[in-house]
Simulated scan of single mutants.
Amino acid sequence: MAAIQTKPMSNLQAELLKLYANNLSDEQLLEIKEMLGNYFAQKATEAMDEVWEAQDLTEQDMTNWTNEHNRLKGSH
């Protein structure tokens, strides 16, 4: 049988494991999920804003992209 290689836990995983020691209500668990979702959504927005500024994009660029048809043949 092959040995299973494991990666060390990330700092996020270690912190989340600490939460598992607490018995949270379903409501608290949902609140934490929402907080995490909001955190990562905010980080994604900040990263996109940086790209937007660096490339000097406009609202018209976004409108143009939404109207493009970039599907490759045979990929539907």
Score class of each variant (00 low, 15 high):
Glu53Ala: 13
Val51Ile: 11
Trp65Asn: 11
Glu15Asp: 06
Met9Ala: 08
Glu53Trp: 03
Asn11Trp: 00
Lys43Ile: 12
Asn11Arg: 05
Val51Asp: 02
Asp56Cys: 07
Thr58Arg: 12
Ala3Asp: 15
Met48Arg: 07
Glu34Ser: 14
Trp65Ser: 11
Glu46Arg: 13
Thr45Met: 04
Met35Tyr: 04
Ala3Met: 14
Gln42Arg: 11
Leu12Asp: 01
Ala44Pro: 06
Leu30Lys: 03
Thr66Phe: 13
Met35Gly: 04
Glu68Ala: 14
Leu57Trp: 04
Trp52Met: 03
Met9Ile: 02
Gln28Val: 01
Asn70Cys: 06
Ser75Tyr: 04
Leu72His: 13
Thr45His: 04
Ala21Glu: 11
Ala3Glu: 12
Gln42Ile: 10
Gln42Asp: 15
Ala41Gln: 08
Thr58Trp: 07
Asn64Phe: 10
Asp56Gly: 11
Asn11Ile: 02
Ala41Trp: 00
Trp65Gln: 10
His69Pro: 00
Leu19Lys: 09
Leu72Ile: 11
Gly37Ile: 02
Leu17His: 03
Asn67Ile: 04
Ala47Met: 06
Ala54Trp: 03
Leu36Ser: 13
Phe40Gln: 12
Pro8Arg: 08
His76Glu: 15
Gln55Pro: 02
Asn38Ile: 10
Leu12Lys: 02
Arg71Met: 08
Gln5Val: 15
Leu19Trp: 02
Lys73Thr: 10
Asp56Pro: 03
Asn64Met: 07
Glu68Cys: 11
His76Met: 07
Phe40Trp: 06
Phe40Asp: 04
Ala47Asn: 12
Met35Val: 14
Gln13Trp: 04
Tyr39Ile: 09
Ala14Gly: 00
Leu12Gln: 03
Glu50Gly: 05
Glu15Ala: 10
Leu12Cys: 03
Asn11Cys: 09
Asn22Tyr: 03
Ala14His: 00
Thr66Met: 13
Ala21Leu: 01
Ser10Asn: 11
Asp26Glu: 05
His69Asp: 15
Ala44Thr: 11
Gln13Tyr: 00
Lys18His: 08
Gly74Ile: 08
Trp65Glu: 10
Glu46Cys: 07
Asp26Pro: 02
Pro8Phe: 02
Trp52Ala: 08
Ser75Leu: 07
Asn70Ala: 11
Glu31Thr: 05
Asp49Cys: 13
Lys7Glu: 15
Ser10Glu: 05
Leu57Ser: 04
Leu36Gln: 09
Ala21Val: 05
Thr63Glu: 01
Tyr20Val: 10
Ala14Val: 02
Leu57Val: 08
Leu24Glu: 07
Asn70Phe: 07
Thr66Leu: 14
Asn22Gly: 01
Asn70Glu: 12
Ala44Lys: 11
Leu29Ser: 06
Ile32Val: 15
Ser75Gly: 04
